[in-house]
């Protein structure tokens, strides 16, 4: 069941930028310097993508990202082996290791299935949509950069750590573990480079929800994320709602209903690349 769309539509361009760029580079090189260097270039590009995705996997432990990284690695290997085929007279299809092609196709299909199920993207926009569903419009922008105490939950440190790990593996949020609390920072798809490459180490200006040792829940919404909404929503209600979304998720997680968390996020009217 889809909720009401509260966010402004997201441009698909950021998600398509890299594949379109790679294709254009391939075509340009094919026309200018020949097909062999073009394949080598494609191989290098896919290898670069693969390295980046492996880094992303090492930071998140998201199984979906591992599938993507393997697909990209085998695609790089396949592209690198094609010049050998094209260089022979007549072309010898067997010169391309069939295993590379087969694995590329296998992981490509798997990746497509995961992408269609929204398992390969950061869920920042889904969370913002979900938080905004019960929120009323406000007469004026009531934004403030103060965090908002949202409530209290009865949880244990161990449960909280496991929940933070779940959020990280499923690309729901990036956890920052502090001595007194765990902060779960939202990441918007397409703006994850800083997080993945370790350049973005401070969550203070991001949208986040924190659970402290006493179970107090605090929410903070970044101005740039608040401005993603179509309307001026009641900021107070929005902060409470975002905190409540994570409180509900923690409750579902504690009951072992992890799949319901993903279901709720998937129900939001957000594209598979935004």
């Amino acid at each position: 069941m889809y909720g009401t769309r509260r966010l402004k539509p997201d441009s698909p361009f950021p998600g398509l930028f890299l594949p379109i760029s790679a294709l254009l580079i391939f075509l340009a090189l094919t026309l200018s310097v020949g097909v062999r260097p073009a394949y080598y270039a494609m191989s290098a590009i896919f290898f670069g993508f693969s390295a980046y995705t492996f880094v992303a996997y090492s930071r998140t432990r998201s199984n979906g990202l591992l599938i993507v990284a393997l697909y990209q690695a085998f695609a790089a290997a396949t592209a690198a082996s094609y010049p050998g085929v094209l260089g022979t007279r007549p072309p010898q299809p067997n010169a391309v290791p069939a295993i590379f092609v087969a694995l590329t196709l296998f992981f490509g299909v798997w990746m497509g299935v995961l992408a269609f199920g929204k398992r390969l993207k950061w869920r920042g926009r889904d969370l913002l949509e979900l938080a905004a569903q019960p929120v009323d419009e406000a007469a004026a922008i009531g934004y403030t950069d103060r965090p908002r105490p949202v409530g209290r939950v009865d949880t244990t440190e161990r449960e909280l750590a496991a929940f933070a790990d779940f959020c990280r593996r499923n690309l729901i949020a990036v956890p920052y573990v502090e001595p007194n609390r765990v902060v779960l920072a939202l990441v918007i798809e397409g703006q994850d480079y800083g997080v993945v490459l370790g350049l973005h180490r401070d969550y203070a200006d991001d949208t986040w929800v924190a659970f402290d040792r006493e179970g107090n829940v605090t929410a903070h919404i970044a101005r740039r994320d608040y401005l993603r909404y179509r309307d001026d929503l009641s900021f107070d209600q929005l902060c409470v709602s975002l905190g409540q979304v994570f409180v509900d998720f923690l409750g579902l997680f504690a009951q072992g209903n992890n799949v319901r968390i993903i279901d709720r996020l998937n129900a939001m009217p957000v594209g598979i690349m935004s």
Binding site: A139, Y143, P149, F235, D236, C239
Partner: peptide, 21 residues
């Protein structure tokens, strides 16, 4: 105290209530 101060679009609270919170 300021951490619990109501947001601009929230219902105002008395100082005593905020101190209690």
């Amino acid at each position: 105290f300021l951490f619990h101060l109501p947001f601009p679009d929230a219902e105002p609270l008395t100082i005593a209530e905020i101190m209690c919170k």
